[in-house]
């Protein structure tokens, strides 16, 4: 059973501001869903054997970089706040 404190803790971890009047409903809903998905624990079966699939080691060679600044303007244009060529955020320290 999830407690109201659990919900507060999870919201904190997920950086979510959950309105006070929604917390109890959310607690009950998440509890019900966890009750259902706990079903997986009934199925026996041990560790997952790590099998390498066909897709592996797909890193590309670090060659042919694009021109510095080629996408800067387009990407920065989408940031809510910017200053010159930086994304602007509030003071961190």
């Amino acid at each position: 059973m999830l407690s109201p404190k659990d919900i507060d803790n999870l919201a904190e971890l997920a950086r979510l501001d959950i309105p006070a009047d929604e917390k109890e409903t959310l607690r009950k809903e998440v509890d019900a869903i966890l009750g259902y998905v706990s079903e997986v624990q009934k199925l026996s079966g041990g560790e997952v054997k790590k099998v390498a699939g066909e897709v592996r080691n797909v890193m590309r060679e670090d060659v042919n970089p694009h021109l510095s600044g080629a996408y800067t303007e387009e990407l920065l244009a989408e940031a809510p706040r910017r200053q010159d060529n930086f994304v602007k955020v509030k003071k961190i320290l």
Binding site: L2, D6, I7, L10, A11, L13, A14, R15, L16, D17, I18, P19, E22, L26, E29, V30, I33, L34, V37, V89, K90
Partner: peptide, 24 residues
């Protein structure tokens, strides 16, 4: 900024699944 943006601008189902995922 993080809490408000994510808490107010994500809808209920999205928040529910994020909480669920954070739990598991």
């Amino acid at each position: 900024d993080y809490f408000k943006t994510r808490g107010r601008l994500f809808g209920k189902e999205v928040r529910r699944r994020i909480i669920l995922g954070t739990y598991v």
